[in-house]
Amino acid sequence: MAQAAARRALVRYRVMAYTTAVLLIILVFAGIPLQVWDHNLWIVEVVGTMHGYLYLVYLLVAFDFTRKLRVPVARMLLVLLAGTVPFAAIVAERLLTRRYERELAEGLLSDPADTATPAPAAER
């Protein structure tokens, strides 16, 4: 896996993590109180729909990124579920970004084919 591909996966994942996290916080801490006490449904309907569809995108992007980082499967499932728990996606984003930086610093994300393969031997 090329380093640039890992970097792109990181950016995609971070954008979607923050987007779903912010929408979910609005939904839970503004939409639901308004629905319960004021019977005002518009935030729940608009933000709920947006969060629902964007969570699908979050799932794809988070799965791709955690697979590139070789995250163990149980933790991968937690990251995917974090998109449905307020603030959990933000915590997951911090932990995964740190993991990415650690793996990058250890040279684990560079493509072995780029560094380990010697140049093709010249024909005599």
Partner: peptide, 29 residues
Amino acid sequence: VFWWYLIHDDPDSLGSRGLKRMVQDGPPI
């Protein structure tokens, strides 16, 4: 779809340790 991908990942390269092993060994030349 995710399940199918997980089953077909190379089990030797999983986790930070697996990633390390994969990079150190490199692809077979």
